[in-house]
Each structure stands twice: as C-alpha cells, then as structure tokens.
Design a protein around this nucleic acid. Structure first.
Lengths: 212, 212
DNA sequence: ATCGTTAACTTAACATTGTTATTTTTAAAT
DNA sequence: ATTTAAAAATAACAATGTTAAGTTAACGAT
C-alpha cells in the first residue's frame, strides 16, 4: 500500500534506511553473503523496491562505502585539533589503525575489496573537505608535520611521505584482517607488530632528534 | 563417453588441468566472475564433473592458491643463493614486490581475498620446505640478515622484523593493486613509492653503517 | 465529488549461478 | 557374455541479481 508522493527529504530518508540496513548486514556477514532480498527485508521493503533507490547492488555498496569514508573522516577529525604537528601525526595514524581493526569489515569494504573506482566528479564525498575526506586530512597532517621539520631533510615530498606511511599502516591492518587466523603464520602479538611498525616508520622518516 | 579407469596419475593430470583452467580464468576475470561452468568448458568437461575432483568452488580456489604460493616460493628461490645476507634480503623483497605487481590477480587471490584459512595440517604446501613455503623463506632471509648484524641492536626478534617488513611491502602492493586507478588519490609514481618504502624500511631497521 | 494520471510499491518472472540427483556410457572383471 | 562400477553427462533445484508487468492510492483537473 503505497502512501504516495514522498518529499525528496522522505526519499532521502528511505535511501539512508536502505544504506543502514545494508551496512549492518555487510559488516556482519560480508558483502558477498548479503542478498538484496535480505537488505530489503531488513528495511521492510520488497527486494525490487531497492532498485528504485539504487540502480544495482554495486551502487548500493558504493554509497555505503562513501558514507563510511565520511564517517572515518569524522572519526579522525578529533585528532586534527592537536596543536603539536608531530603528536597530531602520531595520533592520526593510531586512530586510523584503531578504526581499521575495530571495524574490520568496514575497512575491508573501503580499502580491501575491488569496487568501482571512486570518481570525485560523482562522489557524495566532497574532496578536500576536511569533514569528509580522510585522504586530504592525511595529506594535511603530514604536510604540516613536514613544515614543522620533523622529517629527515632528504625527504622533500610530503605527499610521497604520506602515501608511504599510509601503505605501511594499511599493510599492517590488511594482513591482520585477512590472515590473522591463518595457522600457517606464527604471528607476533598485534600490539608488538603495531609498535614495531610505528617504530620503523619513525626511525625511517624522522630526524634523529625527533624521537626519544 | 568415459574412457574408463584412470590411473591415479591420470586423475592427478585432470586435477591440474582443471586448476590451470581455473587459474587462467581467475587471473583474467577475477575469482567471483568465473563460473564453474566456464572452468569446465575451458577444460572440456561438463560443469558437474569438476565436483568429482573438487568438493566445491572454494576448495578449487584453495588448491589454485596453494599451487601459486608454491610458485611464488619457486620464483623467490633464485634470490636465496645470493651470498651476502643483506643483498639477499633486499633482492628477496624486490622480487616479492615484482611478483605481486606483475601478477596482481595471483597476488589478490593469495593475500587480498578472504578464503578458508590455510591449515598446515591439510595443505598441499610443505611448511618450512624452502622449495614451497615463501613465508619460511622470508623468515630465514631476515634471520640470517639479523645474524649478520645488519639491523639496529634494539631489534631483537627477527620474526617480528620479518612480519613488519612483509606488512609494509604488502601495503604498498595492496594499495597499488586495489586503488591505483582511483582518481581520488593523486598517486606518486609507483617507482617513487617503491623507492620511498624501501628507503623507509632500511633507515628504520638497519644500522646507520649498513646503508650508504 | 469523480476520474484519470502517475508515484510508490509489489508480485511474477527470467537468466545465471553453485550444487545435487539421476542417468548414461564403457572398460574391465567374472 | 554378463555384470559391475568408474567416469562422465544430463536434468534439475534452490538461490541470486535484476527486469517486466501489474497494483494501489494520493493528488490535480474538471
């Protein structure tokens, strides 16, 4: 029974309701295991109605991921107010890893599964908006630390530094998320690996005087 | 028309034929996009016949991945004969990254997709066999470099060092494979990122005297 | 008030997938 | 020659993403 004519606000509400249901299921069961029918049931619609709001499952996933990237940015935002550039950088990294490891399925969705590349022209995320764009936060955090002179003088490109640190931290998180339960590997405790990675990055990137 | 009674060698041949066909398709189309029917057609069987050789698609994938891990180990083996422990370590790492980036779909299958954890008890790979087990190669390469005294004296656990370096290199490869085409990120050239990562690892882990 | 019109939704239906049940073929054993 | 069972194919099922075809009811125009 369709109680007709929805304001665009109401339509938006349905959209986000669908996204919330989808995210909930994605997170607990993994993207592939979740069916459109299951999402629909969760949100109280028939399966085909989802297609009135999202053109297909990929687009639904893309929308959820975009929203989560914004959430990540929101979560990281708290560290941006730290005044000391070095401390800000360190806390930013720690928050990132913490987010990844406490929300492994979020993280997997965002950075570890192939999906349509994120096109800034059509994304719901505003690029370079610090409220939404975690990557631009990273670039800024590293750049300001760089201006503060914490990095080795041979390192002249803050963006390259940022991408390197990101890769290192991503590797830590990704292996943990995907292979932590693999009996093949005699994993050292996660805490030890995190500490070792941070230590390697600091010694590898910063001036001697900066650490310890 | 079944030309009956196969020796176990013949059965093994069919098994590997199926695996080869599956790998070929997995690599070019991604694991999810490949159907059992497509694999079967490629190998000249009916779809259901695959189930005489593999209990399901997951097991087929697992078998392909195991075989590829062995191939990775074979590929890395060439570096093990380098006599200088430091050079061996560096070449080993470079080969690993090169393998990952020239075989992105192999790599994705092996380390970037969730699948049944690899149980050493039932794996076709012989753990600690240097011909087959790339992880044990890594541990040995790092351990011998450690014994040669190339690492900072504060680093006392070669396994932890190995897992940290692996994570760093994995992060580099994984981001490249999954997000290289993402217009959101203004990626620095791959070469620059590789060089920056290696440099960070070296400065972060090795004695000052060791590099340059 | 009534009558289309159409937005919002549902039910049917389809093609494709992984997988199982059933049946066919045929080489060997008796 | 007849039986047996391995090796394969065909038929068939349930589940999935998705499209096509209805169905319902709120609104605008008369």
């Amino acid at each position: 029974m369709p109680p007709k004519v929805k304001t665009s606000a109401e339509k938006q509400a349905v959209r986000t309701a669908i996204m919330d249901a989808a995210r909930e299921l994605f997170i607990h069961q993994g993207v592939e295991a979740v069916t459109m029918r299951a999402v629909a049931q969760q949100v109280g619609y028939s399966a085909t109605s989802l297609y009135l709001y999202f053109s297909d499952k990929d687009q639904l996933l893309r929308a959820v991921v975009d929203a989560d990237v914004i959430k990540l940015a929101q979560s990281l935002k708290s560290t941006l107010s730290i005044s000391d550039p070095l401390q800000r950088f360190l806390q930013f990294g720690q928050h990132y890893v913490q987010f990844a490891l406490t929300n492994p399925n979020h993280y997997r969705m965002m950075f570890m599964t192939q999906h349509l590349p994120c096109d800034p022209a059509f994304s719901s995320i505003e690029q370079n908006n610090h409220e939404q764009d975690a990557y631009s936060q990273l670039i800024d955090v590293v750049t300001s630390a760089w201006h503060a002179g914490v990095f080795k003088p041979t390192l002249t490109d803050p963006v390259l530094i940022a991408q390197t640190v990101w890769a290192a931290m991503h590797g830590l998180c990704a292996l943990q998320i995907n292979l932590a339960d693999d009996a093949w590997i005699n994993w050292r405790p996660l805490e030890a690996r995190m500490q070792a990675m941070v230590s390697m990055c600091m010694h590898g990137l910063m001036k001697e005087t900066t650490h310890e």
